[in-house]
Amino acid sequence: MMTNLFSSFDPISSIMHLSLNWMSTLLGLIFLPYLFWFIPSRWSMLWSLISAALHKEFKVLLGLNNPGGSVVFISLFSLILFNNSLGLLPYVFTSTSHLAMTLTLSLPLWISFMLFGWFKHTQHMFAHLVPTGTPGPLMPFMVLIETVSNIIRPGTLAVRLAANMIAGHLLLTLLGNTGNSLSMLLISILLMSQILLLLLESAVAMIQSYVFAVLTTLYASEVN
């Protein structure tokens, strides 16, 4: 019995005190190898089309100076999408609903962008702190605002992804725990609402992985 509403998100499955829940992060690798030697199917063709579309979009955002950088962000999109989608299955731990996972993705990328930008394009990074057309008296305030907004970027990326994953899972858990005390009519209504929420969560899983990858790509493009 859960003593806390958030207990459904706790990594508690273990063998010899070794947590196994975080191993679900690697489940997405199961779906990748067969693309290389199996006969192409509709799913593999669909994934190839999605990867090609993302490559075209990320290539435009990154510019001509970094044509191969889109591979990193497509891989990031794939990792988050697999974890978000597999987390909707029963008894599968959703690692992207924890800040430990989302911060691990966003913070190293942001730090690498900042180090590259400040060491390679120092003048551009200073110029980026003051938007074009800013009046002279407002420049110190704009520098402060831009600095703060730049510092909180990895936190907002991580919190956005984790909060969206937690919100839907909590709602599904709350509704599912009320089924024991309902009549057959209300249970049928509850079942339909759970199916609709599951469809909504599937859309959220795809949208949030896309948003995370696009925002990371935009942050990378600003340092060039």
Rank of each mutant, 00 (worst) to 15 (best):
S78G: 13
S41F: 01
L115W: 04
K59P: 02
S48K: 09
N66H: 14
W47R: 04
A100P: 11
S97Y: 01
A100E: 13
F116P: 00
T104R: 09
P131W: 01
L107R: 05
P40D: 02
L129M: 13
P40G: 06
L88F: 07
F36G: 05
S85V: 11
S85G: 13
S75M: 13
L81E: 01
T102N: 00
H121W: 14
F36D: 03
H98K: 10
W118I: 13
T104I: 12
A52G: 07
N84P: 12
H128E: 08
L29T: 10
G69P: 10
F38A: 10
L64C: 14
V71M: 06
T122L: 14
G69T: 09
F126T: 05
M45A: 15
T134V: 10
T122H: 15
T104E: 08
S112E: 08
S75K: 09
S112H: 05
W37R: 07
L49N: 12
F38P: 02
E57I: 15
L107T: 07
F119C: 08
M125R: 10
V92I: 07
E57V: 15
V130G: 03
P90F: 04
E57M: 15
L129S: 10
I39Y: 03
L54Y: 03
S44E: 05
L99Q: 08
L29E: 03
L29D: 06
L49Y: 08
W110H: 07
L26K: 02
A127N: 15
S41K: 12
S106G: 09
L76W: 06
N83I: 06
L76M: 08
V60F: 12
S41A: 11
N83Y: 04
L81F: 13
T134P: 13
K120T: 14
L35M: 14
F77A: 05
Q123F: 14
L35D: 11
H121F: 15
S85D: 06
P90K: 07
F119P: 00
F38C: 11
A127M: 11
F58A: 03
G68H: 13
M114Q: 12
S48L: 12
P90D: 08
K59L: 11
L46Q: 12
S106V: 07
G69R: 07
G117L: 03
H128Q: 13
I74L: 04
I80P: 01
G68Q: 14
M101E: 06
T132I: 14
H128Y: 15
L26E: 03
G133Q: 03
H128I: 11
L109A: 08
S51P: 10
M125P: 12
W47K: 09
G28Y: 04
N65F: 11
S95K: 00
T132R: 09
S95Y: 00
L62N: 00
L29I: 11
L103T: 09
L115Y: 03
L86Q: 00
L61D: 09
H121V: 07
A52V: 08
G28T: 03
L32H: 04
I80F: 02
